[in-house]
Measured scan of single mutants.
Amino acid sequence: LAALHAEGPLAGLPVTRSDARVLIFNEWEERKKSEPWLRLDMSDKAIFRRYPHLR
């Protein structure tokens, strides 16, 4: 499970980098069924690119 911001401008976004990794992994797991070539990237760089508020 990932903790998400409940309200405000960040509502629905992950609270920590660990939470972001959970979301990225879950999405990758779903997408790899139809796109088996996808690589999993959970590096800090990938997290910041996707969720800049975690910098």
Rank of each mutant, 00 (worst) to 15 (best):
I47V: 13
A3M: 14
L23H: 03
P52R: 03
L38Q: 07
A2D: 06
A2K: 05
L54T: 01
R39N: 11
Y51E: 00
A3V: 15
L13Y: 06
G8W: 06
E7R: 08
P9H: 09
S34L: 15
D19M: 07
P9N: 08
A46T: 10
T16N: 11
G8D: 05
E29H: 14
R55A: 12
E30W: 12
P14Y: 01
V22Y: 10
R21T: 04
E7M: 10
L10V: 05
A2Y: 10
Y51M: 00
E30V: 14
Y51K: 00
F25W: 11
V15H: 05
A3F: 12
F48W: 09
R39C: 15
S18V: 10
L13S: 03
L23G: 01
L23M: 09
A3R: 15
R55Y: 12
T16I: 01
K32Y: 09
P52A: 04
E7Y: 12
E7C: 12
V22D: 03
G12A: 04
V22K: 14
A20T: 00
L40H: 02
K33F: 10
F48E: 09
G8R: 03
A6Q: 14
D44P: 08
F25T: 04
R31S: 06
D19C: 06
L1K: 14
V15G: 03
K32L: 10
P9A: 10
P36Q: 07
E27A: 07
V22P: 01
S18K: 15
P52V: 03
I47N: 00
D19F: 04
A20C: 02
G12I: 03
M42G: 02
E35M: 08
K32S: 13
H5F: 15
S43M: 02
R31C: 07
S18D: 14
L10N: 09
E35D: 11
H5G: 03
T16R: 09
L38C: 08
F25C: 08
I24C: 07
R39S: 11
R55G: 09
M42N: 06
G8C: 06
M42F: 09
E35A: 07
D19N: 03
I47F: 01
K33G: 09
H53I: 01
H5A: 04
H5I: 10
S18T: 11
E35Y: 11
E7Q: 12
L23R: 03
L23V: 10
V15D: 02
L23Y: 05
R21Q: 10
H53R: 07
S34W: 11
S34T: 15
L40C: 08
Y51W: 15
R17D: 07
D19A: 08
F25E: 04
R21E: 08
A6I: 12
W28R: 01
F25N: 05
L4Q: 06
S34Q: 14
K33C: 09
G12C: 09
D41C: 08
D41E: 06
A11Y: 11
H5M: 06
R55T: 09
S18I: 13
K32V: 15
L40V: 05
A2P: 13
L1H: 13
P14W: 01
Y51P: 00
L10D: 04
R55I: 13
D44H: 07
L40I: 07
K32F: 09
R31F: 06
P52G: 03
T16G: 07
P52E: 03
L13W: 05
V22R: 12
K32P: 02
E7W: 11
E7H: 12
W28H: 05
I24M: 13
V15W: 04
P14N: 01
L54K: 00
S34Y: 14
S43W: 02
L54M: 04
A11H: 08
E27N: 05
L13K: 07
R50H: 06
R49D: 14
V15N: 04
L1A: 14
A2W: 05
G8M: 05
F48P: 00
P52T: 02
F25K: 09
L54R: 00
R50I: 09
G8S: 05
R49P: 01
S34C: 13
K45T: 12
F48Q: 06
E29L: 15
E35K: 09
D19K: 02
E30F: 12
L13V: 03
T16C: 09
L23I: 11
N26L: 15
A6P: 12
G12H: 05
H5C: 07
R17A: 13
D41G: 02
A6C: 12
D44N: 13
F25G: 02
A3S: 13
A2S: 07
R39G: 08
N26F: 14
R49S: 14
W28F: 10
D19T: 02
R39P: 13
L38I: 11
A6W: 11
P36V: 04
K33R: 10
R31P: 02
I47E: 01
L38W: 08
L38F: 15
P9D: 09
N26P: 01
F48K: 06
R55D: 09
R17H: 09
D44Q: 06
A46F: 11
A46N: 10
E35S: 07
F48C: 08
R31G: 07
H53N: 03
S43C: 06
R31T: 05
K45D: 15
P52K: 04
E7N: 12
L40N: 02
W37H: 11
